[in-house]
């Protein structure tokens, strides 16, 4: 049950990150997808992979993406 909830949250957050116009919000949504992945790995009894996903996906990658957003356009053009 928990796994299904997490998978639905994955899809919803992914669609939100694709549809939103503000790039910074999209990056935060991607970080939230990463966090959901870490939780999913944890519930599937893979705490090692969950740690890697939380550290790399939600930590370092979000930093890099925020930096790239700051270097380029924040609003995505239509």
């Amino acid at each position: 049950m928990m796994v299904i909830i997490l998978l639905v949250l994955h899809i919803a957050l992914g669609i939100f990150a694709l549809q939103v116009r503000d790039m910074l919000v999209a990056v935060i949504a991607l970080a939230a997808v990463s966090l959901m992945s870490a939780l999913l790995f944890f519930f599937l009894d893979a705490p090692d992979v969950a740690l890697t996903e939380a550290a790399v996906g939600a930590g370092v990658t979000s930093f890099l993406f925020v930096w790239f957003v700051r270097k380029t356009e924040r609003r995505s053009g239509e």
Partner: peptide, 12 residues
Amino acid sequence: PGGGFQGGVVIA
């Protein structure tokens, strides 16, 4: 759970 790579990324 953990190890060299995960710990290193958390330190960074």
